[in-house]
Design a protein around this nucleic acid. Sequence first.
DNA 1: CGTTCGATGCACT
DNA 2: GTGCATCGAACGT
Length: 218
Amino acid sequence: MILPVGFYHRPTLDVARELLGKVLVCKSPDGVAAGMIVEAEAYIGEEDPACHAAVGRTARNAPLYGPAGLAYVYLNYGLHDMVNAVTEAAGHPSAVLIRALEPVEGLALMRRRRAQAPWRKGKAAVADHELCRGPGNLTRALGITLADNLRPLTRGRLTIRDENLDVGPVAWDSRIGIRVGTDRPWRVTISGNQCVSGVRSRKSQCGMLGDRPRSSLS
DNA sequence: CGTTCGATGCACT
DNA sequence: GTGCATCGAACGT
């Protein structure tokens, strides 16, 4: 079942938590690629210094201010397209960044796309659990680009499905790769999943379990 | 093991 | 002109 708009039209932390275990699907003429979401981050409002809306409404971040259930895709570092699910009511700029997937369908297509990255030409193939590890990697593996910005996630080429997959324990910790707003524990992951990005082979990521971060500031 | 740093393009000041 | 919600190679310990 494809997640309905109502799923996204809720508090962003709840959406982030419940996106774990759901399946992001991208169809293209080359085939279908899909993966289970194992890592996500919440970006909530103009008061969140790490949210793109912290600078107020601009041409780029306008999708954050729109209705829930749309994709917000933008280019980062000139190299990587990042995909978010817009959440909450229109006028409340917020979204969930999808940071890693466990590949489910279209592994061969993912491998082909990853190998096409300019910096990967002539390099060894990536392992299956690395195909969608990291926000830039997963968009490349699924073929998600800026052309998917503002696309509804409730039908068509780009969707998120509930396939009743088991999730198990989840952990909240601070968001990755940002210079501000690191105090907010708004990154959520499936504990122990090999496809989660971030610090490698680090001793057990101090994490709390549960439906909400221990100290949510919202 | 760890840390540094270049590639790359565009929105924003 | 500056600075990224990154990736991965290169280098140091």
